[in-house]
Amino acid sequence: MVETAESRTAEMQGRSWKDRVLQAFRSMMMARTFEEKLTSLYRGGKIQGGVYLGRGQEALSAALAHSLRDGDVFAPLIRDTGGRIGFGEDVKDALRTYLGSPLGPMRARDGNVHRGNPKRGYLPMMSHLGSMIPVVNGVLVARRMRGINGTVGATTIGDGGTSTGAFHEGLNQAAVEKLPLVLVVVNNQYAYSTPTSRQFACADLVDKAVGYGVDGRSLDGTNLEKCLEVLGDATERAREGHGPQLVVASLLRLCGHGEHDDAHYVDPQLKASPLGRDCLEVAESALLEKGWSDAVSLERWREEMREHVESAIATVQREPSPDPYREDWTALASRHLCEPYSESEG
């Protein structure tokens, strides 16, 4: 059900375009299915803290992950459920992070979207927007220093995140180092409630590419095949040594900033515009139109995915919660350097 990194590479190398589209589509559908369950869990009071969804951004996010290969690095942000699944994340691990299971990758120490598996090149985001860009750069520098060629690092940032100093420093650093970084700017028209007019004054965010001396591309983020095409090109250009690739995708956030937010401030005209299309519906129609799938198969997949998520929830809900009295309250790997009060007082 969930693709592994290995199968991703086989797919990139051997499979047809149709199979690639279908595979990315399945990651999108899984992301949507998973997030719908998350919403129910959140409304049922089962999740501590916030829930931030990527509704409407699944095509872009999944296409990015499905453009990557084994050994590549991916640093997703809050709306990248599609990409996380496409990069091979087990939904159980996603759930473990939301539900605070100590068996999850973050062991209940960090939650919700702050999860990853660095050893697999899946970097766990921290909250501060822009701060993952230089971290991806660092992994790419490390690979280059060890003579490992052909690694691509991919990360995303919102329209709001482009206003940070971290974004500027990170992209400029990647450009100076000519790193194989694919930086996807997801312009979903809002940063929480703030419209783009309060965020930047350039005509188009892709204009920034020139200033940084990197390749820039624009993209309709609601169209899965376009996303696969453009991101596939961008990752390959990065892999071939042409330096950072800035891809600016336009779409609309089809949910609140978080599940606590009713997004009443979203302009109805934007909702009615092409930006407001639901990428999952667009992709489903395209599949049906091309005869690459049919209504029965789509429904069957959806059902299988629901069952998969349900069974993952059942498994994770049976897992123990963390024991604060057995927690290892030490923040250093060098245990001999931990202050004694780390152990005694907690």
């Binding site: 750069n137 220093m145 100093g165 420093e169 650093q173």
Partner: peptide, 28 residues
């Protein structure tokens, strides 16, 4: 020459880059 080089004036990115390199096995 391959292991000592100039950074831009970007303290945030300098440290961020070091973190990425360190978790990938280097000792910046």
């Amino acid at each position: 020459p391959e292991r000592v080089w100039d950074s831009p004036i970007s303290e945030d990115a300098m440290v961020g880059m070091a973190v990425g390199a360190a978790i990938d096995g280097m000792r910046p």
